[in-house]
Computed example of a mutant assay.
Amino acid sequence: MNEESIKKITDDISTILLKKNQDYGGASFDLGLNGNMVHLWDKVSRYRNLVEKGRMEPNFESVEDTLKDMIGYAIIGLHILADKTTEDKIYGKN
């Protein structure tokens, strides 16, 4: 692992995330952190099922796709958190 290999992965995830956001119309943000947690939980559960059952070539999303989605949802969660923090500061919430 080095800076170049990390950048390649994060650039790929960035591209995927932007394209999916266009397709879904920002729906990943609609339910806030709770919705984001559910999306992440689903992906973690899928990842666990694939790895524990040794299904490295599933019918649909690969283990690699699932890991990329988990990173994407974590990035979305950070955006939701940043927006909420900014909103709380504007409206004086703690």
Rank of each mutant, 00 (worst) to 15 (best):
G54M: 06
S62G: 14
I90D: 08
R48V: 14
E87F: 09
N49H: 14
A82G: 10
G26I: 02
R55E: 14
K53G: 08
F29W: 05
D42S: 05
K8R: 12
T66V: 13
E57W: 15
Y73S: 03
D69A: 06
K93Y: 02
S28W: 01
R55W: 07
K20E: 10
A74R: 01
T86E: 03
N94W: 11
T66M: 04
N21F: 07
V63I: 15
E3K: 14
I71F: 09
P58L: 04
G32W: 00
L50D: 04
D23L: 11
M37H: 11
D69E: 07
H79R: 11
D88F: 04
G72N: 09
M70N: 09
E57K: 11
I90E: 08
L31Y: 08
L67C: 14
H39R: 07
V44I: 12
G32C: 05
M37G: 12
G35F: 00
F60R: 01
I75Q: 02
M1P: 05
P58W: 01
D30I: 06
T66N: 02
M56C: 11
D88Q: 05
G25L: 04
I71A: 15
L81C: 04
N21M: 10
L50T: 07
S28M: 03
S14H: 11
T85V: 08
S28D: 14
A82M: 09
N59A: 11
R55Q: 15
N34K: 13
D42H: 04
R46E: 03
V63R: 01
S45N: 06
V51F: 10
K84C: 03
K84T: 12
H39V: 00
D23P: 00
A82H: 11
A74V: 08
R46V: 07
E61F: 06
R48S: 09
E87H: 02
T10E: 15
L67M: 15
I76Y: 04
E87L: 08
E4P: 01
E87T: 06
K20I: 09
V44K: 09
K20W: 03
R55S: 06
E61A: 12
N94T: 12
G32A: 09
L40S: 06
T86W: 01
S28T: 02
I75A: 15
Q22H: 05
I90Y: 07
